[in-house]
Amino acid sequence: MLLPVTDADGAPFWQYAARGELRVQACADCGELRFPPRPCCPHCQSFESRWRLMSGRGRIWSYVVPHPPLLPEYAEQAPYNVIVVELTDAPRIRLVGNLVAGPGARLDSLPPDRVRIGARVQVVFGAGGLPQWVTA
């Protein structure tokens, strides 16, 4: 399994995920949500931020099935999906992950033909707090 590369701005996202919480960075001054995390609000230029708890619900906005797998570490789990999820409580925020059969399931736990744009999904957390998605 590949681990995320973290920086000072994104580290809290992964710390919350390791606790089973999906949180998105928000401007502490104007309240605007932003992802990926960054030091400055693009709307009001404030450097103050906080992390807002999300419901973890969303819908599949897009997806792809890489052929061949893009990374050799995932070749044994091919074919697998990579989905883009639009969050229900923050529709302009979209996260990338995998649709799986359950928490911690392998990437190939669902056949690619089961993925549908618009399907409702819920976040679950795999090994190391990696956000994955299951159908809701």
Score class of each variant (00 low, 15 high):
Pro39Asn: 05
Gly102Val: 14
Ala17Glu: 02
Trp133Phe: 14
Thr88Ala: 14
Arg19Leu: 12
Pro69Gly: 14
Gln45Pro: 01
Gly102Trp: 08
Trp61Val: 08
Ala78Met: 06
Asp89Thr: 07
Val134Leu: 06
Pro79Arg: 04
Leu130Asn: 03
Tyr16Trp: 14
Thr88Gly: 02
Val85Cys: 11
Val24Arg: 03
Tyr63His: 15
Phe125Val: 03
Val82Lys: 03
Gln132Ile: 06
Arg114Gly: 08
Ile60Asp: 04
Val123Cys: 10
Pro103Tyr: 05
Arg23Ser: 04
Arg114Phe: 06
Gly118Cys: 03
Gly102Phe: 10
Arg94Ala: 08
Phe13Cys: 07
Trp133Gln: 04
Val5Leu: 13
Leu95Thr: 11
Pro111Ala: 13
Pro131Phe: 07
Leu130Pro: 00
Arg92Met: 11
Ala28Trp: 01
Gln45Cys: 13
Asp29Met: 00
Pro111Ile: 10
Trp61Cys: 04
Ala8Asp: 14
Arg116Met: 12
Val5Arg: 10
Glu76Pro: 00
Val100Leu: 12
Gly31Asp: 02
Ala75Trp: 06
Arg114Met: 07
Gly104Tyr: 12
Cys30Met: 05
Ala28Glu: 10
Leu22Pro: 08
Gly56Cys: 08
Trp14Ala: 11
Gly128Lys: 07
Pro79Leu: 08
Gly56Ile: 13
Ser49Gly: 07
Tyr63Met: 13
Pro68Phe: 02
Ala8Val: 12
Ala90Asp: 04
Gly128Val: 02
Gly128Glu: 10
Leu107Gly: 10
Phe125Ser: 03
Leu33Arg: 07
Pro36Trp: 02
Glu21Thr: 11
Arg116Phe: 01
Cys40Pro: 00
Arg38Gly: 09
Gly97Glu: 02
Asp29Glu: 12
Phe13Ile: 06
Ile117Trp: 01
Leu22Trp: 07
Trp14Tyr: 05
Gly31Asn: 10
Asp108Ala: 11
Trp51Leu: 11
Val82Tyr: 02
Gln122Trp: 00
Ala136Asp: 15
Val85Phe: 03
Val134Arg: 06
Gly58Asn: 03
Pro131Gly: 11
Gln25Asn: 00
Leu53Phe: 10
Gln15Cys: 00
Ile93Gln: 09
Arg120Asp: 13
Gly118Phe: 04
Ala105His: 02
Val96Glu: 09
Met1Gly: 15
Tyr16Ala: 14
Gly102Asn: 01
Tyr80Gly: 09
Pro72His: 09
Val123Lys: 06
Gln77Phe: 15
Val134Phe: 00
Trp61Gln: 13
Gly118Met: 05
Gly129Cys: 01
Leu3Gln: 13
Thr88Arg: 09
Pro72Arg: 06
Arg59Asp: 01
